[in-house]
Design a protein around this nucleic acid. Structure first.
Lengths: 185, 185
DNA sequence: TACATATGTACGTTATATTGAACAATAACT
DNA sequence: AGTTATTGTTCAATATAACGTACATATGTA
């Protein structure tokens, strides 16, 4: 795993440099010895998981930070460019923002639900993260109702029987993130 | 790091069992010795990053799979339960919803920016997904300005120099998702 | 400039990660 | 029942992860 250790090496060295931290200071923050940090940065050692964990925690980055490779670019999306997908009655409208891609394991929508409408969703893999943008929403999970208001949020597993309902007088609007962490065996 | 090794232990043992793999077969698939696999599963050893990487690749799961903790069935967040983090002038307020966890590679915030305020963010790793909930927002990427209105969205790499500015007369509010992708193996 | 401090590198010691092989227990087959 | 194969466990040898310390170099200050 020469390649892996090289990735870790460059990411740790780059992070430390970008923060202007000395090896001494980093050793204090992480609880890993200066000598070990230097070895890791030079790709001369293959750290244990615990050691890398200590480093990640001490430097307050994610574990996977050390395994990243560069990506660049931006994407701008204007609301007018998005075509809504509606259900048959038109009361449930989905605006897709970021569709699923293999190298990105989630997709993001905004959803609008008209007063009096209920939308039962099929169970699915992954997890849902729902953040209420505006209005009131009732989410049923395995028959248990949860009342959400503007600014509230809810996360649940997609294999839960779930439905969204707008019992209020005004349109409800929410952000919906579908996350697919791993293919299960 | 007893806790970490216990997590890895139970996740590896659970995965292997769910696939009906013997230690011998797993050793073949991963290139890690049977004895080592057994030790890891018993939490009796603290594997190096390379070893765990070999196991992840051999079993075709992501590295962070081994660090997941059991999931709760759902999490509900009420807006009143969230404490905002403000900058010095109070014009930039961050509401953390889902903080980063090793088994979930993103975190979600809502942000409010008062009229006339500008917030320069530190460059960081990962990607940002920004969706304007309400108001108008000017995002500068490496000096290039992007004008976003309600319902617009923007995705960009976090290592871009970026700042958020509200040049309008009303508070701007947006959802911010910070994503830290896993590298391709 | 001289001196003090900070920083990174090199070194040797100890603990342990990792292995191949042997062993014990269990399951499958005849 | 006896035999063979499979599976997980144990053991000891080897390599190296990780450390504290010393040293070399760079930086900052008076």
């Amino acid at each position: 795993m020469e390649h892996l250790n090289k990735m870790i090496a460059s990411n740790l060295a780059g992070l430390r440099k970008s923060r202007g931290l000395s090896l001494d200071r980093t050793a204090e923050l992480t609880g890993v010895s200066k000598a070990m940090l230097a070895q890791i940065e030079k790709g001369k050692s293959n750290p244990t998981v615990s050691t890398l964990w200590k480093i990640a925690n001490g430097l307050q980055v994610s574990f996977s930070y050390f395994m990243k490779e560069d990506k660049v670019s931006f994407i701008k999306i204007n609301k007018e460019d998005i075509s809504a997908v509606e259900d048959e009655e038109g009361g449930y409208r989905v605006f897709p923002y970021f569709k699923f891609q293999p190298d990105r394991k989630f997709e993001i929508y905004t959803v609008e639900l008209e007063p009096g409408c209920v939308h039962g969703a099929k169970t699915h893999l992954g997890e849902e993260y729902l953040l209420v943008r505006d209005g009131a929403l009732t989410v049923s999970l395995d028959g248990e109702e949860h009342q959400l208001n503007t600014g509230d949020a809810l996360q649940f597993s997609g294999n839960t029987m779930h439905s969204y309902e707008n019992k209020a007088a005004n349109t409800a609007s929410f952000f919906l993130l579908m996350y697919y962490p791993e293919p299960e065996a």
